[in-house]
Nucleic acid binder design. Structure first.
Lengths: 207, 207
DNA sequence: TGTTCTATAGAACACTCGTTAAATATAAAT
DNA sequence: ATTTATATTTAACGAGTGTTCTATAGAACA
């Protein structure tokens, strides 16, 4: 008899415990809070939850339950971006090598996306996207995008990277600047390469 | 004999414990980690730290130490901003009334400032500040600002709010748009009213 | 000088904790 | 029907926990 509902209830109770009290519940707290009949029941479900990777516990340690979902995510902060050069895309070892610069973001800013990284913009080549020198652009590393989304594209002929809203039109692609006062440019489909979606833009002032 | 150093060491150890293990240490963990000679010593310093408001503990509860410094701050998210109207400044009850919309930010984004609030921009009247429709501006509610800082000012004569860098010049004040391609405007000192400093700008896309 | 406040020291108490074991119950699979 | 995997029940052990008590020591202060 699979019983996922009771484990969801336990997870919910653990979350509630962190919210209300600031720390994890004990096994016996869970017994009371979820109307279980015995510590063994709780123990059993906690072991299952740990096997499923939903929680982590340190053996023998009181109140050591940790939920695996995070409120703060650290994303790699890649180097400068310059006019006439492709936007840096993280390589496979960029995701693993830790001693790089990172940026802390609240999880609700990026939803539950993965492959997120950030770029620090140098120079004013992105002014038409309302992005200033020093701004930080949060990107999702994807190679496809839906119409209307703000994407980073590499223009092969022009050897230039740019941030625009993308619209597919018959025989051509329209790239629309975020600043609506500026006119769109049109390119041939084979001339562009989508390097990522823009998830957010961040400007820090008054430091 | 005041001994603040040892308490700083204890606080540092607690922080370290949260970072490394994800939960608070026990009294005896602290004894070992800070080379104390007895649980009573740790107990005494923990009681003092709690009196000072630096930590909080629930009596009799294992691993219930909580640091009072927060990693995530919730700031009130005030309503729209429109051309020709002053930028909303939170009133005293805005700070206390909780059931409003809030925005979660990482603490390192705003430093250790207080009186922080956020504005959701409606319309494109702030384009010269590289701020688009839908952007969120994080503000610090102050009435004075240093030269070069990005501030929200209310132009009395024009009955208009705007975001500019402020520079005091002899007999006049220069308001410089963030977009350097645009020209500054000059106003009389008695014509402007500083409503706050811009701490950060935030643009969320691809939702 | 004596008093007061803070810090340190060692020991002990009462209690809660995570864990385990053995037996049983229930559901799914073959 | 038999086997297998999952779920529940009851009970208990031993280790670790926050707390308290008493005693000592030094510094600040009047």
């Amino acid at each position: 008899m699979r019983k996922p509902e009771i484990r969801e209830k336990i997870l919910e109770f653990i979350r509630h415990s962190f919210d209300e009290r600031g720390y994890a519940p004990t096994v016996r707290d869970i017994v009371k809070g979820c109307n279980l009949s015995s510590t063994s029941v709780a123990q059993h479900h906690l072991n299952t939850l740990e096997k499923e990777g939903r929680i982590h516990r340190d053996p023998q340690v009181v109140r050591s339950i940790q939920l695996m979902k995070k409120d703060i995510v650290e994303v790699p902060l890649l180097g400068a971006i310059a006019a006439g050069k492709p936007i840096p895309v993280p390589s496979s070892d960029t995701w693993t090598t830790p001693p790089e610069e990172t940026l802390k973001l609240t999880a609700d800013m990026i939803g539950n996306k993965s492959n997120i990284y950030a770029l620090k913009i140098k120079g004013t080549s992105m002014l038409d996207a309302l992005i200033d020198d020093g701004d930080i652009v949060v990107m999702e590393a994807v190679s496809t995008a839906e119409d209307g989304q703000m994407v980073a594209v590499w223009l092969k002929d022009e050897q230039e990277a740019t941030l625009k809203k993308i619209y597919r039109e018959p025989g051509r692609i329209r790239l629309q600047p975020a600043n609506k006062q500026m006119k769109p440019i049109y390119v041939k489909p084979q001339n562009i390469e989508v390097q990522g979606k823009v998830v957010a833009v961040l400007r820090r002032l008054s430091r």
